Computed example of a mutant assay.
Amino acid sequence: MSTTVFDVIAIGVPDAVRVLRDAGITAVAELPDPAAISRTFDDAEHTWSVQTAEDTVRGRIVVSAEAPGGPLPAYLGVAAHRFPNHFTISGPGRIRVHRWRYVVGCLHVMAEAQATRIEVRHRTQRTADARERTGRWYWRRMRRQIPSVFDLDSQIGVEDEVYDGPALVTLAGSTQIRRVRLSGHLDPVDGRYHWRGTVFGELPTRRHTEPVTVAVDGSSAEGRIGEPTPWGHAIAGVGAPPFPVDDVVVHVPAR
């Protein structure tokens, strides 16, 4: 696997290098569409790994000629919920130009917010107008709304604790062994420990923000199940985490 982490991996998008260079982004890996065998997003490092016949290419953002799939049309034809840091560029003429400007706008919003993860909200995609608009003022208004229709997050720091392994997950009265990848940090603002990550595989849940208990090696903690991802479900909690942490005093408020 290559150790280089590109800013953008462009898959089957021949004009990507030119457009991104004009936007000030030069660390771009350009792959022809058939070269990409599979792609995997690391939710801890906020990077994509794209497997080709010769190597694995890593990058922070993927721009692809084809949408990643799903039950809903891509938002504005460029982004899909459950596929963070992944954008689609398709269509000819003016619609393609507008979509490129929108994607570049998303990258600029990420840079300004010092975010390393961006994902369109499910509600945004579900309620969006699926018509292909080419009006300049419409797309300018859409670009102004980027901070309110995407979820932005920052990368896990080197000082954060990370646990990747089996856990007992209790949800909706059912306890199962699941692989989890969890990380956390002590927030200097509120003085509390915040942890989050992914529970891999299917879970017996019908609604988001459902309470869940996660136990690792005799330690357990309550959290909330978030929206589904391509690999399972997001999970987050505040307070003592379900995995061991070193040299950290965790404040648990009295109830």
Rank of each mutant, 00 (worst) to 15 (best):
V103K: 09
R94T: 12
P84K: 04
Q176W: 11
V238A: 00
R82G: 12
P244Q: 00
T3C: 09
E227V: 11
R94S: 14
R96F: 10
V19S: 08
R255F: 04
T3K: 14
E210H: 13
E210V: 07
V97L: 15
L168G: 05
V214S: 05
R141I: 06
H86W: 15
S38D: 08
F87V: 07
R143Y: 10
Q51N: 10
L182N: 03
H86K: 05
P204Q: 04
G239T: 01
A29N: 04
G69Y: 15
Q145P: 07
V13P: 11
I9F: 07
I235D: 03
S49D: 01
E202D: 07
R179M: 08
S220I: 00
G70R: 15
V28Y: 06
V17F: 10
Y102S: 08
G184C: 09
L203K: 03
Q51E: 14
D246R: 10
W100T: 00
A23W: 08
R21M: 14
H122A: 04
L168Q: 13
A67N: 11
V180C: 04
F41H: 00
L186E: 09
V199C: 02
S64A: 14
G223H: 01
L182R: 11
A128R: 04
V158I: 09
G70T: 12
V245C: 04
E210F: 15
S148V: 05
T229W: 01
V5D: 12
A74Y: 13
P166W: 00
F87M: 11
Y75T: 09
A29I: 03
I118C: 14
I146D: 14
